[in-house]
Design a protein around this nucleic acid. Sequence first.
DNA 1: CCGGAAATCATCCGAACGGGTGACGCGCGC
DNA 2: GCGCGCGTCACCCGTTCGGATGATTTCCGG
Lengths: 148, 148
Amino acid sequence: MRKAVLTYGLLGGALIALLQAVQYRYLVVDHSLEIYGGLVALIFVALGIWLGLRITGRRERVVVREVTVPGPPEFTRNDAKVEALGLTPRELEILEFIAAGLSTREIAERAFVSENTVKTHSSRVFEKLGARRRTQAVQLGKAFGLIP
Amino acid sequence: MRKAVLTYGLLGGALIALLQAVQYRYLVVDHSLEIYGGLVALIFVALGIWLGLRITGRRERVVVREVTVPGPPEFTRNDAKVEALGLTPRELEILEFIAAGLSTREIAERAFVSENTVKTHSSRVFEKLGARRRTQAVQLGKAFGLIP
DNA sequence: CCGGAAATCATCCGAACGGGTGACGCGCGC
DNA sequence: GCGCGCGTCACCCGTTCGGATGATTTCCGG
Protein backbone atom coordinates (compact mmCIF):
# COMPACT_ATOMS: atom_id res chain seq x y z
CA MET A 1 0.00 0.00 0.00
CA ARG A 2 2.56 2.52 1.11
CA LYS A 3 4.84 1.27 -1.57
CA ALA A 4 2.20 1.96 -4.16
CA VAL A 5 1.66 5.48 -2.94
CA LEU A 6 5.37 6.12 -2.91
CA THR A 7 5.69 4.73 -6.39
CA TYR A 8 2.95 6.97 -7.69
CA GLY A 9 4.51 9.94 -5.92
CA LEU A 10 7.89 9.35 -7.49
CA LEU A 11 6.30 8.74 -10.84
CA GLY A 12 4.40 11.99 -10.55
CA GLY A 13 7.60 13.81 -9.59
CA ALA A 14 9.45 12.36 -12.53
CA LEU A 15 6.65 13.36 -14.82
CA ILE A 16 6.71 16.89 -13.53
CA ALA A 17 10.44 17.09 -13.97
CA LEU A 18 10.05 15.78 -17.47
CA LEU A 19 7.35 18.28 -18.22
CA GLN A 20 9.45 21.08 -16.94
CA ALA A 21 12.40 19.99 -19.01
CA VAL A 22 10.16 19.81 -22.03
CA GLN A 23 8.62 23.12 -21.21
CA TYR A 24 11.87 24.96 -21.01
CA ARG A 25 12.99 23.55 -24.28
CA TYR A 26 10.04 23.72 -26.53
CA LEU A 27 7.34 25.66 -24.83
CA VAL A 28 7.21 29.34 -24.24
CA VAL A 29 6.10 31.00 -21.09
CA ASP A 30 2.59 31.74 -22.31
CA HIS A 31 1.85 28.07 -22.02
CA SER A 32 2.36 28.33 -18.30
CA LEU A 33 -1.36 28.24 -17.58
CA GLU A 34 -1.77 24.85 -19.19
CA ILE A 35 1.32 23.59 -17.45
CA TYR A 36 0.11 24.94 -14.17
CA GLY A 37 -3.24 23.30 -14.73
CA GLY A 38 -1.52 20.05 -15.59
CA LEU A 39 0.53 20.19 -12.43
CA VAL A 40 -2.53 20.92 -10.38
CA ALA A 41 -4.27 18.06 -12.09
CA LEU A 42 -1.39 15.74 -11.39
CA ILE A 43 -1.19 16.76 -7.78
CA PHE A 44 -4.85 16.30 -7.22
CA VAL A 45 -4.90 13.04 -9.07
CA ALA A 46 -2.23 11.86 -6.70
CA LEU A 47 -4.25 13.22 -3.80
CA GLY A 48 -7.29 11.44 -5.16
CA ILE A 49 -5.45 8.18 -5.40
CA TRP A 50 -4.24 8.54 -1.87
CA LEU A 51 -7.67 9.56 -0.70
CA GLY A 52 -9.36 6.74 -2.56
CA LEU A 53 -7.10 4.15 -1.03
CA ARG A 54 -7.47 5.82 2.34
CA ILE A 55 -11.25 6.03 2.31
CA THR A 56 -12.06 2.62 0.97
CA GLY A 57 -9.45 1.13 3.22
CA ARG A 58 -8.14 -2.31 2.76
CA ARG A 59 -10.80 -4.83 3.11
CA GLU A 60 -9.98 -8.04 4.81
CA ARG A 61 -11.45 -11.27 3.75
CA VAL A 62 -11.32 -13.89 6.37
CA VAL A 63 -10.99 -17.25 4.81
CA VAL A 64 -11.79 -20.03 7.18
CA ARG A 65 -10.12 -23.13 5.95
CA GLU A 66 -11.20 -26.25 7.71
CA VAL A 67 -8.36 -28.57 8.41
CA THR A 68 -9.28 -32.12 9.14
CA VAL A 69 -7.19 -33.29 11.98
CA PRO A 70 -6.25 -36.97 12.01
CA GLY A 71 -7.34 -37.39 15.57
CA PRO A 72 -10.29 -39.58 16.47
CA PRO A 73 -13.56 -37.68 16.33
CA GLU A 74 -15.35 -37.61 19.62
CA PHE A 75 -18.55 -39.53 19.25
CA THR A 76 -21.87 -37.79 19.73
CA ARG A 77 -24.99 -39.81 19.26
CA ASN A 78 -27.30 -38.71 16.49
CA ASP A 79 -30.36 -38.42 18.71
CA ALA A 80 -32.43 -37.02 15.87
CA LYS A 81 -31.81 -40.19 13.92
CA VAL A 82 -32.58 -42.32 16.94
CA GLU A 83 -35.84 -40.45 17.29
CA ALA A 84 -36.64 -40.74 13.60
CA LEU A 85 -36.05 -44.48 13.61
CA GLY A 86 -38.01 -44.92 16.83
CA LEU A 87 -35.21 -46.81 18.52
CA THR A 88 -35.73 -47.37 22.24
CA PRO A 89 -32.86 -47.08 24.73
CA ARG A 90 -32.83 -50.80 25.28
CA GLU A 91 -32.67 -51.52 21.57
CA LEU A 92 -29.80 -49.07 21.22
CA GLU A 93 -28.05 -50.84 24.07
CA ILE A 94 -28.43 -54.23 22.40
CA LEU A 95 -27.15 -52.71 19.15
CA GLU A 96 -24.04 -51.58 20.96
CA PHE A 97 -23.51 -55.04 22.35
CA ILE A 98 -23.88 -56.49 18.89
CA ALA A 99 -21.37 -53.99 17.53
CA ALA A 100 -18.98 -55.06 20.27
CA GLY A 101 -18.97 -58.48 18.65
CA LEU A 102 -20.90 -60.32 21.35
CA SER A 103 -23.11 -63.32 20.74
CA THR A 104 -26.76 -63.41 21.70
CA ARG A 105 -25.90 -65.45 24.76
CA GLU A 106 -23.16 -63.09 25.89
CA ILE A 107 -25.44 -60.11 25.45
CA ALA A 108 -28.12 -61.86 27.48
CA GLU A 109 -25.63 -62.37 30.29
CA ARG A 110 -24.39 -58.80 30.27
CA ALA A 111 -27.86 -57.32 30.01
CA PHE A 112 -29.33 -59.67 32.63
CA VAL A 113 -32.12 -60.86 30.39
CA SER A 114 -32.93 -64.08 28.57
CA GLU A 115 -31.59 -64.87 25.12
CA ASN A 116 -35.11 -64.66 23.77
CA THR A 117 -35.37 -61.10 24.93
CA VAL A 118 -32.12 -60.21 23.24
CA LYS A 119 -33.39 -61.83 20.06
CA THR A 120 -36.61 -59.84 20.25
CA HIS A 121 -34.72 -56.58 20.72
CA SER A 122 -32.30 -57.31 17.94
CA SER A 123 -35.15 -58.24 15.63
CA ARG A 124 -36.78 -54.89 16.32
CA VAL A 125 -33.48 -53.13 15.73
CA PHE A 126 -33.12 -54.93 12.42
CA GLU A 127 -36.54 -53.99 11.16
CA LYS A 128 -36.15 -50.38 12.29
CA LEU A 129 -32.76 -50.10 10.66
CA GLY A 130 -33.75 -52.09 7.63
CA ALA A 131 -30.98 -54.56 8.27
CA ARG A 132 -31.07 -58.29 7.68
CA ARG A 133 -27.88 -59.25 9.45
CA ARG A 134 -26.00 -58.31 12.59
CA THR A 135 -23.05 -57.04 10.59
CA GLN A 136 -25.33 -54.92 8.45
CA ALA A 137 -27.02 -53.51 11.53
CA VAL A 138 -23.62 -52.54 12.88
CA GLN A 139 -22.60 -50.95 9.61
CA LEU A 140 -25.84 -48.96 9.40
CA GLY A 141 -25.68 -48.06 13.06
CA LYS A 142 -22.25 -46.55 12.60
CA ALA A 143 -23.25 -44.82 9.37
CA PHE A 144 -26.26 -43.27 11.12
CA GLY A 145 -24.17 -42.16 14.09
CA LEU A 146 -26.10 -44.33 16.49
CA ILE A 147 -23.03 -46.08 17.85
CA PRO A 148 -19.33 -45.09 18.04
CA MET B 1 -16.94 -0.24 -9.16
CA ARG B 2 -19.36 1.25 -11.64
CA LYS B 3 -21.61 2.24 -8.82
CA ALA B 4 -18.74 4.04 -7.13
CA VAL B 5 -17.84 5.91 -10.29
CA LEU B 6 -21.44 6.90 -10.83
CA THR B 7 -21.70 8.05 -7.25
CA TYR B 8 -18.60 10.16 -7.55
CA GLY B 9 -19.80 11.58 -10.84
CA LEU B 10 -23.16 12.58 -9.44
CA LEU B 11 -21.52 13.99 -6.35
CA GLY B 12 -19.15 16.01 -8.49
CA GLY B 13 -22.00 17.30 -10.62
CA ALA B 14 -23.99 18.30 -7.58
CA LEU B 15 -20.97 20.07 -6.17
CA ILE B 16 -20.39 21.95 -9.39
CA ALA B 17 -24.01 23.04 -9.51
CA LEU B 18 -23.75 24.14 -5.90
CA LEU B 19 -20.58 26.05 -6.60
CA GLN B 20 -22.14 27.75 -9.57
CA ALA B 21 -25.13 28.77 -7.52
CA VAL B 22 -22.84 30.06 -4.82
CA GLN B 23 -20.65 31.78 -7.33
CA TYR B 24 -23.45 33.72 -8.98
CA ARG B 25 -24.76 34.86 -5.66
CA TYR B 26 -21.80 35.85 -3.62
CA LEU B 27 -18.74 35.76 -5.76
CA VAL B 28 -17.76 38.12 -8.45
CA VAL B 29 -16.42 37.11 -11.76
CA ASP B 30 -12.81 37.77 -10.84
CA HIS B 31 -12.95 34.83 -8.50
CA SER B 32 -13.55 32.59 -11.49
CA LEU B 33 -9.95 31.45 -11.56
CA GLU B 34 -10.08 30.06 -8.05
CA ILE B 35 -13.40 28.44 -8.74
CA TYR B 36 -12.11 27.00 -11.96
CA GLY B 37 -9.07 25.71 -10.15
CA GLY B 38 -11.25 24.22 -7.43
CA LEU B 39 -13.43 22.50 -9.97
CA VAL B 40 -10.42 21.15 -11.77
CA ALA B 41 -9.04 20.00 -8.45
CA LEU B 42 -12.30 18.32 -7.56
CA ILE B 43 -12.57 16.62 -10.90
CA PHE B 44 -9.04 15.36 -10.74
CA VAL B 45 -9.40 14.23 -7.19
CA ALA B 46 -12.39 12.22 -8.31
CA LEU B 47 -10.38 10.94 -11.24
CA GLY B 48 -7.58 10.10 -8.86
CA ILE B 49 -9.85 8.18 -6.59
CA TRP B 50 -11.24 6.28 -9.48
CA LEU B 51 -7.78 5.67 -10.88
CA GLY B 52 -6.43 4.63 -7.54
CA LEU B 53 -9.14 2.06 -7.05
CA ARG B 54 -8.80 0.99 -10.64
CA ILE B 55 -5.06 0.55 -10.68
CA THR B 56 -4.45 -0.93 -7.31
CA GLY B 57 -7.55 -3.08 -7.55
CA ARG B 58 -9.47 -4.11 -4.55
CA ARG B 59 -6.67 -5.40 -2.54
CA GLU B 60 -7.84 -8.01 -0.15
CA ARG B 61 -5.80 -9.21 2.65
CA VAL B 62 -6.64 -12.83 2.94
CA VAL B 63 -6.46 -14.01 6.46
CA VAL B 64 -6.41 -17.73 6.66
CA ARG B 65 -7.65 -18.95 9.94
CA GLU B 66 -7.26 -22.65 10.21
CA VAL B 67 -9.94 -24.33 12.20
CA THR B 68 -9.38 -27.86 13.29
CA VAL B 69 -12.44 -29.86 12.59
CA PRO B 70 -13.12 -33.23 14.16
CA GLY B 71 -13.50 -34.80 10.72
CA PRO B 72 -13.00 -38.46 10.00
CA PRO B 73 -9.44 -39.66 10.32
CA GLU B 74 -8.05 -40.88 7.05
CA PHE B 75 -7.61 -44.61 7.19
CA THR B 76 -4.22 -46.20 6.77
CA ARG B 77 -4.01 -49.94 6.95
CA ASN B 78 -1.86 -51.39 9.68
CA ASP B 79 0.26 -53.51 7.39
CA ALA B 80 2.49 -54.60 10.24
CA LYS B 81 -0.53 -56.09 11.96
CA VAL B 82 -1.65 -57.73 8.75
CA GLU B 83 1.79 -59.26 8.44
CA ALA B 84 1.86 -60.35 12.06
CA LEU B 85 -1.51 -62.06 11.76
CA GLY B 86 -0.59 -63.63 8.44
CA LEU B 87 -3.69 -62.35 6.71
CA THR B 88 -3.66 -62.81 2.95
CA PRO B 89 -4.99 -60.11 0.60
CA ARG B 90 -8.00 -62.20 -0.26
CA GLU B 91 -8.83 -62.78 3.37
CA LEU B 92 -8.55 -59.08 4.03
CA GLU B 93 -10.89 -58.45 1.13
CA ILE B 94 -13.47 -60.86 2.50
CA LEU B 95 -13.14 -59.21 5.90
CA GLU B 96 -13.97 -55.88 4.33
CA PHE B 97 -17.03 -57.36 2.68
CA ILE B 98 -18.13 -58.78 5.99
CA ALA B 99 -17.65 -55.39 7.65
CA ALA B 100 -19.81 -53.89 4.92
CA GLY B 101 -22.65 -56.00 6.26
CA LEU B 102 -22.87 -58.43 3.36
CA SER B 103 -24.01 -62.03 3.64
CA THR B 104 -21.86 -64.94 2.51
CA ARG B 105 -23.90 -65.21 -0.67
CA GLU B 106 -23.58 -61.53 -1.50
CA ILE B 107 -19.85 -61.65 -0.91
CA ALA B 108 -19.59 -64.68 -3.18
CA GLU B 109 -21.36 -62.75 -5.94
CA ARG B 110 -19.21 -59.66 -5.57
CA ALA B 111 -15.97 -61.62 -5.33
CA PHE B 112 -16.88 -63.97 -8.19
CA VAL B 113 -16.29 -67.09 -6.14
CA SER B 114 -18.49 -69.77 -4.64
CA GLU B 115 -20.08 -69.42 -1.24
CA ASN B 116 -17.90 -72.26 -0.02
CA THR B 117 -14.79 -70.30 -0.87
CA VAL B 118 -16.07 -67.29 1.01
CA LYS B 119 -16.77 -69.51 3.99
CA THR B 120 -13.25 -70.93 3.84
CA HIS B 121 -11.72 -67.46 3.71
CA SER B 122 -13.87 -66.15 6.51
CA SER B 123 -13.06 -69.19 8.65
CA ARG B 124 -9.36 -68.51 8.20
CA VAL B 125 -9.91 -64.86 9.03
CA PHE B 126 -11.73 -65.87 12.19
CA GLU B 127 -9.02 -68.18 13.40
CA LYS B 128 -6.26 -65.68 12.58
CA LEU B 129 -8.11 -62.90 14.34
CA GLY B 130 -9.25 -65.10 17.16
CA ALA B 131 -12.86 -64.25 16.44
CA ARG B 132 -15.81 -66.57 16.73
CA ARG B 133 -18.41 -64.39 15.01
CA ARG B 134 -18.61 -62.06 12.05
CA THR B 135 -19.41 -59.10 14.25
CA GLN B 136 -16.45 -59.89 16.46
CA ALA B 137 -14.19 -60.17 13.44
CA VAL B 138 -15.36 -56.75 12.29
CA GLN B 139 -14.80 -55.26 15.73
CA LEU B 140 -11.30 -56.74 15.99
CA GLY B 141 -10.52 -55.79 12.40
CA LYS B 142 -11.33 -52.17 13.13
CA ALA B 143 -9.49 -52.22 16.44
CA PHE B 144 -6.40 -53.61 14.71
CA GLY B 145 -6.58 -51.05 11.92
CA LEU B 146 -7.11 -53.69 9.28
CA ILE B 147 -10.26 -52.12 7.92
CA PRO B 148 -11.59 -48.53 7.91
C1' DC C 1 11.63 -79.24 -10.57
C1' DC C 2 9.79 -79.51 -6.18
C1' DG C 3 7.74 -77.68 -1.86
C1' DG C 4 4.88 -74.44 0.08
C1' DA C 5 1.68 -70.63 0.22
C1' DA C 6 -2.54 -69.04 -1.58
C1' DA C 7 -6.86 -69.49 -3.67
C1' DT C 8 -10.47 -72.27 -5.00
C1' DC C 9 -14.43 -75.59 -4.19
C1' DA C 10 -16.72 -79.22 -1.69
C1' DT C 11 -19.36 -81.88 2.11
C1' DC C 12 -21.14 -82.55 6.73
C1' DC C 13 -23.03 -81.06 11.02
C1' DG C 14 -24.11 -78.51 15.02
C1' DA C 15 -24.69 -73.89 16.64
C1' DA C 16 -26.24 -69.41 15.97
C1' DC C 17 -29.16 -66.31 13.77
C1' DG C 18 -33.50 -64.14 11.79
C1' DG C 19 -38.57 -64.02 11.18
C1' DG C 20 -43.01 -64.68 12.86
C1' DT C 21 -46.19 -64.87 16.42
C1' DG C 22 -48.15 -64.69 20.96
C1' DA C 23 -48.19 -63.31 25.63
C1' DC C 24 -47.51 -60.76 30.17
C1' DG C 25 -46.42 -56.92 33.28
C1' DC C 26 -45.38 -52.12 34.14
C1' DG C 27 -45.69 -47.21 33.95
C1' DC C 28 -47.65 -43.15 31.86
C1' DG C 29 -50.97 -40.07 29.87
C1' DC C 30 -55.72 -39.18 28.27
C1' DG D 1 -59.48 -47.15 34.02
C1' DC D 2 -57.97 -47.93 29.39
C1' DG D 3 -54.83 -47.84 25.80
C1' DC D 4 -50.17 -47.64 24.50
C1' DG D 5 -45.25 -48.02 24.43
C1' DC D 6 -41.73 -50.55 26.34
C1' DG D 7 -39.42 -54.39 28.10
C1' DT D 8 -39.68 -59.04 28.98
C1' DC D 9 -40.00 -64.10 27.75
C1' DA D 10 -41.32 -68.13 24.94
C1' DC D 11 -41.78 -71.40 20.89
C1' DC D 12 -41.21 -72.73 16.12
C1' DC D 13 -38.99 -72.97 11.78
C1' DG D 14 -35.98 -72.07 8.13
C1' DT D 15 -31.63 -69.96 6.99
C1' DT D 16 -27.12 -68.74 7.84
C1' DC D 17 -22.95 -69.27 10.09
C1' DG D 18 -18.86 -71.55 11.99
C1' DG D 19 -15.81 -75.63 12.49
C1' DA D 20 -13.56 -79.53 10.69
C1' DT D 21 -11.65 -81.75 6.93
C1' DG D 22 -10.17 -82.84 2.33
C1' DA D 23 -9.03 -81.82 -2.40
C1' DT D 24 -7.31 -79.27 -6.62
C1' DT D 25 -4.98 -75.60 -9.10
C1' DT D 26 -1.76 -71.93 -9.61
C1' DC D 27 2.18 -69.49 -8.76
C1' DC D 28 6.60 -68.46 -6.76
C1' DG D 29 11.18 -69.20 -4.77
C1' DG D 30 14.87 -72.27 -3.61
